[in-house]
Amino acid sequence: MLLYAVKRLLYVLPVALGVSIVCFLLVHLAPGDPLTSILPIDATAQQQQEMRIAYGFDKPLPLQYGIWLWKVLHGDLGRSIATGRPVAIEVANAVGNSLILASIATLIGFGFGTFFGFVAGYFRNSLLDRLASVISILGVSVPNYWLGMVMVIVFSALLGWLPSTGAGPNGSAHWRPDLEHLRFILLPALTMSAIPMGIISRTVRALVADILDQDFVQALRAKGMREGAVFRHVVRNAAPTALAVMGLQLGYLLGGSILIETVFAWPGTGFLLNTAIFQRDLPLLQGTILVLAFFFVALNLIVDVLQSALDPRIQRG
C-alpha cells in the first residue's frame, strides 16, 4: 500500500513538469502584449523596452521559462502587472475562497446525490426512482449560471433572505466559518452543487442497481444477513467509485467555477482568472492556471490512492 502510494507520487513528477511547461507556453501563445494595458497610450518605444526588460519579456522563451520555473519552485509566482501585489498571495487567497466554496458545494452535491442515488437504485422503476431521476437530470442539464441568477432573483431580490454577492459582509475578501459568512456562501454553493449532485446521483443509482443484481447480494441474504448488513455491503462496494466521482467533481468545481464565481462575485480562482484574462495580467494568469493544474494532479493522486485502499482488486503494484 505504502509502496503504491510512493510509486504513484513519483509518477506525479513528470506530469507536473509537463503541466508547468504547458501553463507557461499557453499564455505566451495568446495574442496581445500585457504591457500595453498598463503603459500609458503615449508611452515611447524606449519606455516599452524598459518595461519589457523589467518584466523579463526580452529574453528568449526557454530562458524565461527557466527563470519562471526556478522562481515558482521557490514559491515566487511573480507580481501581478495590474495590482503589483505578489501573485502567490493573490492566488492563495483566491484558492482558499474557491476551495471552501467547492468543498461545501461538493459536500452538498455528494450528500444529496448519494441519497437520491441510493433511493433510486434500491427502488428501481418506482415513483421515487423517477422523481430522483428528474431531479438529477435537471441538476446536470440546467446551465448553472442561469440557475445562479434565478437563485439570486428568488432568494435575494424577491425574498431578501440571503445576500447575492461577495464572500462576506462589507466586501470581505476572506471567508470565515461563522454564521454571517455562511449566509454568503449558501447561494453560490447550492448553485454549484447542482451538477455534482446530478452526476453523483446517476452514478450511484447505476452502481447500486448493478450491485444489487450481483450474486453476492443474494448470497448475503441466503446466509441470513439482515437488510441493514446487506446495505453496509452495498455501500462498501459502491464507495470506491462514488468517491472517485466525487473527487473528480471537486476538481471540476475548483477549476470550472468561473461563471458561478462571476455571477456571485465570489473572490475565488474563477473570478481571479476572469480578471487576469481581461486585464492581460500574464503572471497572474500563469500563476492561477499553474496552481489549478496542480490541484487536478494532486486530486487524481489522492483519488487513486484512496481508491486502491478501498477496493482491494485495484492493482497496488
Binding site: D215, F216, A219, R221, A222, D311, P312, R313
Partner: peptide, 24 residues
Amino acid sequence: LTAYRGRTVSMIFQDPGLAFDPVY
C-alpha cells in the same frame, strides 16, 4: 426468515467467484 436462512438451511452457489462480496 433471516434467522432461518444460514442457520437451519444454507446455500452454496454455482459461481463462488460471484457469491462472495469482492471487497471483504
